[in-house]
């Protein structure tokens, strides 16, 4: 395999991994506070639809992205109101949110099907993009990819180096202790849920404004579910999550490229490689059972109700 082809695969892998990384990052923070939101796919579709509509009607991609983020947040607001304020079952509420979002986005986006826009284009950063191999890979991407780099770094810093991160983790580990310390558990969980919604909306807009600039029903095709799995395999660690998302992207592209090169392996088997490779690598790096146990938020998917406790 020549170096140019490898570079092209890696550039494509980065693009394929980005929507997964964005949505999974939101869900990771959300789960760190103990909230399991299975509505990712629904929120992402609403984001994709709203983002496309915004960009199409205003002619401004950034307004589109803003609208996508707001749509994702509106969906997560619904989830939060039900599961955090009314203490409904998180799993059932999340599933319902996915079904609701899938249907609502098709309904509202019916008139958008068939429209086209000019999506986000790669922007080369001067000097940096001239670095051999790494330059075109990291510094000749579209704005949303750069934004994803910033968001990953910022989330890591907030989660590990700030009081906010400590609060988030405390709420996820033991909400009753956190409550006793005066932390407003429901408020923290709600904010994290909204952050998750915003990231899902952003990921959706990446799909409809950069990856494949168009809107079609169910265009995210299950990426919200893959993101949920990635969070678990990354054992709730942001660095591992980024690795997992890009690895998944790399394996997805590799299987298409290998078929084109005429490698005689069953495409069905090749199609499994992204899943298998990601699972194997993630299990290997997080195989320490104790570390895994420690990184799983103890109160995940458990409602918080101080009256019961």
């Amino acid at each position: 395999m020549d170096i140019l082809l490898l570079q092209q695969i890696m550039i494509a892998a980065l693009k394929t991994g980005t929507p997964l990384l964005l949505i999974a990052l939101g869900e990771l923070v959300c789960e760190k506070t103990g909230v399991l939101n299975l509505g990712q796919e629904g929120m992402m579709l609403m984001g994709a639809m709203a983002g496309f509509a915004g960009a199409l009607y205003t002619g401004n991609l950034f307004l589109g992205v803003t609208l996508a983020i707001l749509a994702g947040m509106a969906m997560s607001l619904l989830f939060g109101a039900l599961s955090l304020n009314l203490n409904t079952n998180q799993v059932a509420t999340g599933l319902a949110l996915t079904i609701f979002g899938t249907g609502l986005s098709s309904f509202l986006g019916g008139d958008l099907v068939g429209s086209t826009i000019d999506g986000f284009k790669p922007i080369a950063i001067p000097l940096l993009s001239d670095i051999p191999f790494i330059g075109p890979l990291l510094f000749k991407q579209d704005l949303l990819v750069y934004l994803s780099f910033v968001l990953v770094a910022a989330s890591w810093w907030v989660m590990h180096k700030t009081r906010v991160g400590l609060t988030v983790r405390a709420v996820g580990e033991n909400p009753y202790s956190a409550n006793a310390l005066g932390i407003k558990v429901i408020r923290v969980r709600f904010l994290a849920t909204l952050f998750g919604g915003a990231m899902a909306g952003l990921a959706g807009s990446y799909m409809s404004l950069a990856y494949t600039p168009m809107w079609m029903e169910n265009m995210t095709a299950g990426r919200g579910w893959i993101a949920l799995a990635l969070v678990v395999f990354a054992s709730w660690r942001i660095a591992y999550l980024a690795l997992g998302a890009y690895l998944f992207g790399f394996a997805s592209i590799l299987h298409l490229v290998m078929q084109g090169l005429g490698v005689d392996i069953s495409p069905n088997l090749l199609a499994m490689t992204p899943y298998i490779a990601t699972i194997v690598v993630m299990v290997a790096i997080s195989s320490n059972a104790l570390a895994q146990k420690l990184s799983t938020p103890m109160s995940l998917a458990k409602p918080f109700d101080p009256k019961v406790h």
Binding site: I9, M219, G222, L256, Q259, G260, N268
Partner: peptide, 21 residues
């Protein structure tokens, strides 16, 4: 290139790019 789907815009687009590469 087999994509094992009738409809996944992202994957169809990836396949087109892989072929064009």
């Amino acid at each position: 290139v087999w994509v094992n789907t009738w409809y996944d815009p992202g994957k169809e687009s990836d396949a087109a790019n892989a072929l064009m590469d």
